[in-house]
Simulated assay, not measured.
Amino acid sequence: MTEIGFGIFCTNGDGKLSTNHTFRLKNLTFDRVFEAFLKNLSDFFKLLDLCKREKIEVFRLGSNFIPYASHRDFKEEWFGKLESYLKEASERLKEYPIRITMHPGQFVILNSPKSEVIENSLRELEYHFWVLDSLGVGDEGIVIIHVGGVYGDRERSIDRFMVNIEKNKWLKIRLTVENDEKLFNAREVLNIAKNLGIPFVFDFFHHRLNPSEIELKEVFNTWIGKGVPKMHLSSAGEGRIGSHGDYINTEDFLELYKMIKDSDVTRVHIMIEAKKKEKALEKLRKSLLPVKL
């Protein structure tokens, strides 16, 4: 039987706790950074306490944990001023049996034809890696990105993505890649991950919107020697196609679970990408009580 550990991301369900407190760029000063960072740090541990109580095994830290840390106007010496707080946090973090991951936004594009975009993307990823390193998070603390755009030539765009990662091999320490809902399907992204030797994060909702032929056993093979495989699960919300719902439809979970079970994997982590976070997970767990998995 496959063991499943669940995760939530960035905030709690009502948004009162968040690791993404920030401010407007025009107000960038160390004092404003420090104020937002301390609030994020405080809420981070409150969220970890929530995860511990609710038996949630994975938490995705917000990318704004240190606001504007990858921006050119963020001064190098500010990192030094924050380091002791992160070192102290790394000691506290040892008390929590919770996997910490990160997922920078869509502006991280490693296959852009523009060198400036690549440079900015690498700087953003350096920041994410630095945060996880400073918090003492091991290699299980992955950083998830999408492939990027097509730019009129799918094959050349894939090649650029792979070349830019091979040029910056430090990325392979934590980097994982995820299928998206429009451009690069699971089969394409799996092939990219296999060629690069990095893990593939399978997003079930994106797979439904942008389907391809795939077996999860192949996906899980990219994780051999690299920790517990991580997946994403959400259900459709209102509004534009691709919007995430507040909760998870039980049928969506059961369909994904069947795919997982057929793969013979022993353990997986599923990030619940529903807006109500821990409330969505609580509702899903209750709905599964009568179900024999």
Rank of each mutant, 00 (worst) to 15 (best):
L171A: 05
N191P: 00
L171F: 05
N164Q: 05
H206I: 02
E181C: 07
L196P: 05
D203K: 01
L209H: 09
K167D: 05
L190R: 08
K167F: 07
I192V: 09
F202H: 13
A186K: 05
W170M: 13
I192T: 03
A193P: 12
R156W: 00
G152I: 01
G197N: 01
L190I: 00
T176W: 11
R174T: 03
I158L: 15
N195P: 09
F205C: 08
M162I: 08
E188L: 14
N179W: 03
P199C: 04
S157A: 13
N191W: 01
K194L: 12
E166S: 13
A186C: 01
L171N: 04
R174L: 10
K172G: 06
E155C: 01
L171Q: 06
R154M: 06
K169Q: 14
F204N: 11
E178W: 11
N185Q: 03
V163A: 09
W170K: 14
V189H: 09
P199Y: 00
R208C: 11
N168E: 09
L196F: 04
V201T: 12
L209T: 04
L171E: 05
F205K: 04
I165H: 11
R156V: 06
I198G: 03
H207V: 04
N179H: 02
P199N: 07
F202W: 11
S157V: 00
R156I: 02
F202Q: 10
N191A: 07
W170D: 09
R187G: 13
G197E: 07
M162Y: 07
K169E: 15
E181A: 09
M162P: 14
